[in-house]
Simulated assay, not measured.
Amino acid sequence: MTPLKANSLSTQLALGIDIGGSLVKVVLEEGDGSSDSAQHPLLSFVHNIASQNDGEIPDGWKCSVARIPEGSSDANSTTLRALVLPTADISLLIDKVKNNWRTGARTIRIAATGGGALNHKATLERGLCVELVVAKELDAVAAGLAADIGASSEEQMLVCNVGTGVSLVSVDSQGNVERVSGSGIGGATFWGLTKRLTNFKSFDQAVVAAKKDGVLGKADTLVEDIYGRETSKEIGLAPDLVAGFLGKLDADNLTDADVSAALLRMFVSNLGQLAVFQARLSKVDAVWFTGGFVQSAEDTGEESECSAPAIVRQAITEAVSFWSAGSIAAQFPRNAALLGAIGAIHATSATLSE
């Protein structure tokens, strides 16, 4: 079957898919001139379900609609219709798309990225009548950030992508992307320890409980635990400064919320330190934070101060401010968790339009 160049950027209609170990994020990018979203069953399905025009949404699937860049006029913006589902539901996605299959549907090219893009490539291509054009994950994140915030090509950026692990990516004034640092202490570390040490069933539940009910310091060894409160002040250290994370994990009066609060603070402190040190080396005064840890998949509406994404962002902001003494800013794109899917479209645009 001859590929149909339906989703090149020139047609103002494009689809990108970011496949991780646990989640698949699908983004349909539509310009104001898009009028052919129904030309392929996959595009039609994503358009309808993301717009909530496709009946009941399966459990565990999340849909949203947004416009990028944020703050731009409608004439210069693009509509995003996003669908997030468990990676385990890829077969269900294929079945649902096939329910709307039209005889004679041709193969289209779609952009893809993420650790699972190659693992699931054959299944998706065969099941959905598509050809996947795969972009490198960090290239896609950088391109997605630029599209989301409307960044100028002359801007130098430092991106801290927090997913399973952590990658720090430098994007220079020419748009070149380079991974300059990183850490294996990432989102998987936080959630793995949380699952092992508490009874929380979801990331959002653990984060919200940490903020609402957790008491900071109950699970950590503080300076005052070593020197005493007054002596700590005499030697110039704040009594509530953490001397050792999780140093009191064997305390009898700890709740799950206390442990989650300690784990979150430990993780974001390490993250903030890593980001600040790299920002100084890169000579930038801001770090953009992206990835699934920054904006959880359960966030599909307006954030409240008590939502998991808002809590995580505030914790990261405070950590960056602490380690930089307020000299470096933590910044967050509006569609942080979708940047891979968005950026895959832009990173592969030349190939898609061939």
Rank of each mutant, 00 (worst) to 15 (best):
L4R: 13
L4G: 11
K5P: 12
A6S: 01
S10L: 11
G21H: 13
L23N: 02
V24H: 02
V26A: 11
E30I: 12
E30N: 04
E30F: 01
H40C: 04
P41I: 13
L42T: 06
H47S: 10
H47Y: 14
G55W: 04
G55R: 09
S72Y: 14
S77K: 08
T78A: 10
L80T: 08
L83T: 06
A88I: 00
I94A: 06
K96C: 03
V97C: 08
N99F: 00
N100S: 13
T103A: 13
A105S: 15
A112I: 06
G114Q: 06
G115R: 12
G115I: 08
N119V: 08
N119Y: 09
L124Y: 07
E125G: 02
A135H: 04
A135R: 09
E137Y: 06
L138Y: 13
G144C: 04
G150V: 03
A151I: 01
Q156H: 11
E178G: 01
R179V: 06
G182N: 09
S183I: 10
G184P: 06
I185A: 15
G186I: 12
G186L: 13
W191I: 04
G192Q: 08
T194A: 15
R196Q: 06
F203K: 02
V208S: 06
V208C: 10
V208M: 14
K212R: 14
V215W: 02
T221R: 15
D225G: 14
D225A: 10
Y227V: 09
R229N: 05
T231F: 12
E234Y: 01
A238L: 10
A238Y: 06
V242N: 04
A243I: 05
G244M: 11
F245Q: 02
K248N: 11
L249G: 00
D250S: 14
D252T: 14
L254N: 11
L254A: 09
T255V: 00
S260R: 12
A261L: 08
M266E: 00
Q273F: 14
A275I: 01
V276N: 01
K283T: 02
V284W: 09
D285L: 08
F289R: 03
G291A: 05
G292R: 05
S296V: 11
S304E: 01
A310W: 05
A310T: 05
I311D: 09
R313H: 00
E318K: 15
A319Y: 07
A319C: 03
S321R: 10
S324Q: 04
S324T: 07
A329L: 11
F332Q: 03
R334S: 10
R334L: 12
L339W: 03
T348F: 02
S349V: 07
